[in-house]
Computed example of a mutant assay.
Amino acid sequence: CPSGAIYKRAEDGVVLVNENNCRAWRMCVAACPYKKVYYNWSSGKSEKCILCFPRMETDQAPACAHSCVGRIRYMGVLLYDADRIPGAAGVSDSELISAHNEVILDPNDPEVIAAARANGIDEGWLESARKSPVYKFIKVWKMALPLHPEYRTMAMMYYVPPLSPVVSVVEDELFRLDITDEKHDFEVFHHLDSARLPIQYLANLFTAGDEKIIRQVLRKMLAVRIYMRQKSVEKEISSEGRIQA
């Protein structure tokens, strides 16, 4: 930005546009690798999501996370080691996801807790980090992935890759999943390789082209989907339907 209108808040890392300084160069629109900055032709200023920082300052979640009826957005505290960021950003594409995750620290580790306290981290933040659903999605369940990690911006924004919807038309009476034994058929779920969103497309978005990681995540999600369907619809968890994610 030639005008210096874009800046990052030191207290929480939120990137903002100072519209008083914005002179509509629009270089930020072209430069943003995530296409999150847009130009408002009515105001003549560049704008972007402000992550509802006034709400966060009063201990409230951003409006999108608070209002989403599907509960698909979560806001959580992550503890990370800033000294590891340069090394993590410099690894090869095949190691990016693991290196990205290694930057995030275990909030239950006594050494991490002691180091955080020594650096002035408040007990409330530590407790929030221990309860963070975001940490579980990334480090425990390993289901959330960064967007375009190959850009090496190390952004702390993660996404759970989408599954295809439940189908209403079944070909040849049954659908077969590649995550179960060959003798088991499930009627309403797509095979991974015939999903509406190709595996390679998702890999290019979330894993720098590594299809293996995407498949592992989708297999876990399919396993949960089948388990919950058996539990809520069939009212019985079939031992034959167990899935190794």
Rank of each mutant, 00 (worst) to 15 (best):
F53D: 15
D185C: 13
G124M: 01
D122Y: 07
E240Q: 11
P110T: 07
A155P: 02
I50A: 08
D185L: 15
H190G: 12
I6N: 03
G70F: 07
L177F: 10
N40S: 10
V166K: 12
R219D: 09
I104M: 01
M221E: 15
V17N: 01
V170D: 13
L218I: 05
N40M: 08
M157F: 11
V112F: 02
Y151T: 10
Y135M: 02
A65L: 01
V224M: 11
I214Y: 04
A144L: 00
L105M: 06
S46E: 12
E19R: 15
E123Y: 12
A195M: 13
F206W: 05
S46P: 05
A208R: 06
P2Q: 10
A65T: 06
R242E: 14
E171V: 14
V169Q: 07
I138E: 00
D106Q: 01
N20C: 08
Q230G: 14
D83F: 07
A114P: 10
H190C: 13
A208N: 04
G70A: 12
V166G: 05
A129F: 03
W125Q: 13
L192F: 10
L177R: 10
Q230D: 13
S42Q: 15
T180Y: 03
Y159K: 06
K231P: 09
D109F: 04
F137Y: 09
F186V: 11
K35R: 12
K231D: 10
M56T: 08
L163V: 02
S43R: 13
G76L: 00
I6P: 02
A24N: 01
A5G: 01
Y159V: 07
A115M: 11
E19P: 06
G124P: 04
G209V: 03
N204S: 15
R152G: 02
G76N: 00
E171G: 14
Y151E: 10
A99R: 06
N20L: 15
M228H: 14
M154D: 03
Y39M: 04
I213S: 04
I226W: 08
R9K: 09
V103E: 00
A89H: 01
A63D: 09
I50Y: 04
L197D: 14
H190M: 13
Y74D: 04
D59S: 07
P198H: 08
G4E: 00
T180L: 09
G241C: 03
G87C: 06
D109Y: 03
E211W: 07
I121P: 10
P110S: 07
R23S: 06
I138K: 01
P110A: 07
I113C: 05
E123P: 12
E102H: 06
P165D: 03
S239A: 13
T58F: 12
L16M: 02
F175H: 15
S164E: 10
A82D: 05
I243D: 01
K35F: 12
L126Q: 05
V14M: 00
D122V: 08
D210C: 05
I179R: 04
H148W: 11
E211G: 10
D93T: 02
T153C: 06
N40D: 12
T153R: 07
S46R: 08
V188D: 15
R196C: 12
A245F: 11
Q230T: 08
